[in-house]
Nucleic acid binder design. Sequence first.
DNA 1: GTCTATATTGTGATAGAC
DNA 2: GTCTATCACAATATAGAC
Lengths: 205, 205
Amino acid sequence: MVLQTETEEKIVASAEKLFYQKGKAGTSMQDIADDAGMNRTLLNYYYRSKDQLFEAVFRKALGRFVPSLAAMLHSDISFEEYVPVMIETVIDTMIDNPQIPIFVLQELSSNPQRMPEIIREMGINPAVAMKKMASEGTLSVEQGIDPRQFIINLLSLCIFPFAARPVITDILFEGDNEAYLSAMKERKKLIPQIVKQIMMQNPSK
Amino acid sequence: MVLQTETEEKIVASAEKLFYQKGKAGTSMQDIADDAGMNRTLLNYYYRSKDQLFEAVFRKALGRFVPSLAAMLHSDISFEEYVPVMIETVIDTMIDNPQIPIFVLQELSSNPQRMPEIIREMGINPAVAMKKMASEGTLSVEQGIDPRQFIINLLSLCIFPFAARPVITDILFEGDNEAYLSAMKERKKLIPQIVKQIMMQNPSK
DNA sequence: GTCTATATTGTGATAGAC
DNA sequence: GTCTATCACAATATAGAC
């Protein structure tokens, strides 16, 4: 991961592009070699198998957005302070890699048994995260806000619009990709406003 | 679609199950035949090709949740009245078919050029929908609420938690599927509250 | 309608020449 | 490191017997 040859870089670049778009099973080694403009056997030379090449791409995808989520769950900073930063970071990452959400979620949906290992590797500790959430004064069950539901809402608002890109672009923006993109940028200001309102929530019970 | 033989029903049932889980390319005709407990050639007899079998499954998946979304965009009833109904309908559908969001979004992400045709077939008229949104008094740009952003938020909150099921279950609910499910049911009450707040929003400009 | 047999193509992967 | 040649196998699909 530290130093890569030019050939190796071309391989992952093509593999990322095609795996993101067509998925693991939908992409053949030949497809990747063609896109990278090289002989198919070179992929095996560098990565031994399709599984290992896919794994490299998958880990790289995880590495693009898991860290900022993990930081939210674990840092000493309160939700209230960290959330606006995290929203901007996540949305910027999604704008640069709009296909990542579906790619990652599809893999995890097919192989949910991989979650525990991934959680461990990414340095997430669910128990600690729960404790942090429970201890936050501004966001507690006593105030009527379940911290878990809050996290779910936050991630939904940030990530889903990218997973549903074609639907949103064609139905709400009549196929105008520029309009879609500028709406996504707009959400960097919009979502914090919504989040603030949710946190001040005083439910009707 | 009106009348199906028992064999035909078994085929689609198995095809749905496997396509939802592993995707189109990740599922072979043999896999489906095995799951349905029949000879592989029967699939070709009834559906001619894998493409056509997939298409049948895909259309059926669309049919499960597009109608309630289309109704929201077109019915004479105002957003304010229709939204709570729609939230309950969509979430109930997702609870029964939790794999549909990723399945459909993955297909549309791989083949976004299919959107225009699908929109037409499903009877959605983007221009009319825009007009309706613009004319609603309780939800207008003048009030600081972009109707398109509102729809995006609504769909995000309803659908994303199902697309991200494994992540949410293992990180936020420590692997407890029952807890996850009951949280999803809880959202049928939670999301309308959030939506109400968003609609009363008076942004700080 | 359901089976066996077969045609054809594509796949991932390796051995071995250069 | 990069190529050609080749392997074993799996895929979709069809023809034709029953």
